[in-house]
Design a protein around this nucleic acid. Structure first.
Length: 891
DNA sequence: TTCATCACG
DNA sequence: ACGTACGTGATGAAA
């Protein structure tokens, strides 16, 4: 059987451009020892590996543009004129890019008078005749005109890894056109970047409409009499020759005089030796290491002295010869699996002075001197992920008390958007390449396994420890340069210990209570299911949005309100609009609500109640969110239902762990708006908080122009509340209009009025965006940073998103800072006051405790007192408390 | 694995 | 003419 030939054609200029701009913000990080920029080469290589692996071509060619003069400039002198000049940082990379391709064994090709597009078009046509499957890779959508049943056009999206594949069907779906009609469209609407005009006043909308009606530019001119008289028609008549010229310019040639034969494009993989030399020249250490890991240069030990680390395998008999109280150790405890509350121990490595010790026998940690190293007050311990380590060690009976450097935590503080949890990947972000990622060593998914070969595990663990030790000084220096040392030392590092205690404590959950709720739910669900099948006239999977869509919008012919990219939307908002049109809608809504409770909160929670202590031990992720909030996983205890009565019952299952104890809860009231009042210095908003007013009602009076003592209707208060929320999120008229269910114009008026009433807020919003633009990041009250590179994007959506983020992050993030400070002080206060009460949970603006009933009166003083004095703002912080026998009652 | 949906602040 | 409210995590379906 003969295998199909597969030809891969790459538009070299266009992909290099994409790669260059995708990594533009890291431009200065990608410079090799000769001062050459390498970001486009790097991105190109990533894309190339990706596409080679997915396509597995038999033949490959990369086409480049030959120069400015082409047959198109002869036909139309202004073609591609006025284009910004290629930045020198990019053009210097092209010769090296071609070098790399040659090391890959791939032909680079260019042709005088023609563009890369035409080379690709011509070769694709030839290959199709020989029954090849063709894949074209480009950053330029114009090439989609080449899509056929045999040719797929893969268009690079914003990054280098995301691609969108255009088949004729996809072109049809996207534009309602056949690929061949793309040129007619370009002829009508022109192309800004290629600098040809198209027909005046015809844009994509009109162009598509005309083509759907007449099929082609020729078709339009043959049927001009069918068009009603209009300015557009006049333009069409006046600019007929332009339309045809532009169509011709857009047409990719399929008959360029190419000398090269298909056989010459045959690809048999890279020349590893040349590739290695190339990476060395480019300083692509990660790719070199990848090659080493893949065993691609076993014959050469060039990187071996760097790669290898000398270690001793630790054994019982060696313990006695170890130092007693070293000043500093670097330690890594490995477990098999994510959940450190119960994951199996896999081994540990520890560096003391310049020696590395490693073993699988974690039991050795329980003995001297190792236990003492970790527990004494004189040795500073350097780690990666202190919380994981603290909890792991606690399971071995070891109380780690002092952490000097936590690589994971420090790295997160330096850049909250770079939140990988993998030591190897994270080290790379800091230009350290001598440690592999866990995925590389352990595999992932079903293949995940701790290596059985000692040397493989031991090397990896020692590499990790070495990375922590090596990165300590430079990263702490960066923290200091950012003025973030205090954030680390006074907030995040102590918080790690607080969170560890909360996680270890866990919260008791009564499975019987959950099962009681469940039996009622199951009954209701079965009734609803019957009603829905009856109303639909058939049985189907109600949980499948796809099947549900068919029933609602095809069988029952309900109007389509919104579409998702895969089909009809059946989200709540849509169903609510369909309410009253058919009884099935209400039943589906109810079914959804209850099914969610059953699957996520009944079945989900039952699964994670520990058999040992009947408790749930969540894990708080301290190094994930871009704003500085915590998140909670496995299970998420920060989204237990409360808004609807049915779901709220779940909270009845959360109980104290001792008889006679209570659940106690305190939450900040309107903390985000108070933070906003503080950082914006808005006098009016501050006055409202100082007066202890109902802020949403007060906002309503002001923006709707009511008297100070006027009664505010529920509806006006609701609208004002939505505006307040919108302000915190970085307002847009569209978002507000959707949320409140008013017109966009109306929403816009509300916002304008809001900014008139709260001019300080208005000014803050403008200034924070300006500041983000100028410095590239925004900060919270305690100097937590979030970088917003996209604020400089030319893409409206990306830029707008970054702008809203700039407005929101200091607010959300400062609120997160504040409760973190409160948590640290809270833990200290409970200890200092010798209370048995334990802090168990944090839900962003709320702390939940369990305590003996007789401690409740003291907590009612202590907790709010600590929370509202955590920081000194220009407005007071308000805290509300409640308690009861279960979490349900503590509200 | 990715998508749509829905739970929380 | 565009298409958005900010921050999360878990689930079931479908590829």
């Amino acid at each position: 059987m003969k295998e199909t030939n597969k030809l891969l054609l790459i538009d070299g200029n266009s992909v290099a451009f994409r790669a260059f701009f995708a990594l533009h913000q890291s431009l200065e990080r990608f410079i090799n020892h000769d001062g050459l920029h390498t970001n486009a080469i790097y991105g190109f290589k990533k894309m190339l590996d990706n596409i080679l692996a997915t396509v597995q071509p038999t033949h490959v060619l990369v086409a480049f543009d030959a120069g400015k003069q082409t047959f198109r400039t002869e036909k139309f002198a202004a073609y591609k004129q006025g284009r910004a000049k290629t930045p020198s940082e990019l053009s210097e990379q092209f010769p090296f890019l071609k070098k790399m391709l040659s090391a890959y064994g791939i032909i680079s090709y260019e042709l005088t008078n023609y563009e890369a597009d035409d080379i690709i078009g011509t070769l694709a046509a030839q290959a199709e005749l020989q029954d090849f499957q063709v894949t074209i890779v480009t950053g330029d959508r114009d090439l989609t005109q080449l899509a056929t049943t045999k040719t797929t056009v893969a268009v690079n999206q914003k990054g280098v890894s995301e691609i969108e594949k255009y088949t004729p069907a996809h072109v049809q779906e996207k534009y309602g056109l056949a690929p061949a009609q793309i040129v007619d469209l370009k002829g009508l609407i022109g192309d800004n970047s290629d600098n040809y005009p198209g027909v005046t006043k015809i844009g994509e909308k009109t162009g598509l409409r005309l083509l759907h009606q007449f099929g082609s530019i020729e078709g339009i001119y043959q049927n001009l009499d069918q068009l009603k008289p209009s300015k557009m028609k006049e333009n069409l008549i006046n600019e007929e020759s332009t339309a045809f010229l532009c169509k011709d310019l857009a047409q990719i040639r399929r008959d360029a005089p190419i000398e090269i034969k298909m056989d010459q494009l045959k690809w048999d993989g890279p020349d590893l030796k040349s590739l290695r030399e190339f990476y060395l020249a480019m300083d692509f250490r990660s790719f070199l290491r990848q090659m080493a890991v893949d065993g691609q240069f076993q014959d050469q030990q060039v990187t071996a002295d760097q790669e290898q680390v000398t270690y001793q395998v630790l054994e019982q008999t060696k313990l006695a010869s170890l130092p007693v109280v070293p000043a500093q150790v670097t330690f890594y405890l490995e477990m098999s699996g994510e959940n450190y509350h119960n994951a199996e121990f896999a081994g540990f490595a520890i560096k003391v002075d310049d020696k590395f010790y490693v073993t699988r026998q974690t039991e050795l940690l329980k003995q001297a001197p190792l236990k003492n190293w970790l527990e004494n007050q004189e040795t500073s311990v350097n780690l990666f992920d202190a919380k994981r380590t603290i909890i792991g060690l606690r399971r071995l009976g070891i109380h780690l008390q002092r952490v000097a450097f936590d690589l994971l935590l420090v790295s997160y503080l330096l850049d909250t958007s770079d939140n990988s949890n993998d030591l190897g990947k994270l080290a790379q972000q800091h230009d350290y390449y001598l440690v592999a990622s866990d995925e590389e060593v352990y595999g992932k998914g079903t293949k995940y396994a701790i290596p059985s070969k000692d040397s493989r595990l031991f090397e990896h663990l020692c590499h990790k420890v070495r990375a922590i030790a090596e990165l300590q000084q430079p990263l702490l220096a960066k923290l200091e340069a950012n003025q973030q040392l205090e954030l680390y030392l006074k907030i995040e590092r102590p918080l790690t210990f607080v969170l560890a205690e909360m996680e270890i404590a866990g919260i008791k959950v009564d499975p019987q209570k959950l099962k009681m709720i469940s039996s009622k739910l199951i009954e209701q669900l079965s009734d609803l299911e019957k009603a829905i099948y009856n109303e639909a006239g058939e049985e189907f999977n109600i949980n499948s949005p796809k099947q549900l869509g068919v029933i609602l919008f095809e069988k029952l012919k309900l109007p389509v309100i919104k579409k998702t990219k895969t089909g009809y939307s059946t989200a709540v908002g849509v169903l609510e609009k369909l309410r009253g049109m058919a009884p099935i809608v209400d039943h589906i809504l109810k079914y959804r609500q209850l099914a969610k409770l059953q699957s996520t909160y009944i079945d989900g929670l039952l699964k994670v109640i520990s058999a040992k202590d009947q408790k749930i031990h969540t894990r708080y992720t301290q190094t994930l969110t871009a704003t500085g909030r915590l998140s909670s996983v496995d299970p998420n205890l920060q989204n237990i239902p409360i808004r609807l009565a049915e779901g709220r019952q779940i909270r009845q299952a959360f109980v104290p762990s001792h008889a006679g104890w209570k659940i106690f809860s305190s939450d900040y009231s309107q903390i985000e708006l108070r933070v906003l009042a503080h950082i914006s210095h808005d006098q009016n908003m501050q006055a409202a908080f100082k007066a202890g007013a109902d802020i949403h009602a007060s906002t309503a009076r002001q923006i709707f122009g009511l008297a100070d003592d006027a009664k505010v209707t529920a509806n006006l208060r609701r609208q004002a509340k939505a505006v307040n929320f919108g302000i915190v999120y970085g307002i847009s008229d569209y978002g507000l209009s959707q949320n409140v269910g008013i017109s966009r114009q109306q929403a816009k008026k509300f916002i304008e009025r809001y900014f008139e009433v709260f001019p300080g807020v208005h000014q803050y919003m403008q200034e924070i965006v300006k500041k983000a633009h100028a410095q590239g990041y925004v900060e919270t009250l305690f100097k937590r940073r979030r970088y917003l590179p996209e604020i400089k994007s030319k893409n409206y959506n990306l830029r707008s998103f970054a702008e809203r983020t700039a407005m929101n992050t200091p607010i959300q993030g400062s609120a997160a800072d504040i409760i973190k400070v409160a948590m640290i002080r809270m833990q200290q206060a409970l200890q200092a006051n010798h209370l048995q009460a334990k802090m168990l949970l944090q839900v962003h603006d709320e702390l939940i405790f369990e305590a003996p009933a007789d401690e409740i009166p003291r907590l009612e003083e202590l907790v709010p007192g600590i929370m509202d004095s955590a920081v000194d703002l220009e407005v007071p912080l308000k805290v509300e408390s409640a308690y009861g026998d279960t979490w349900f009652e503590a509200k």
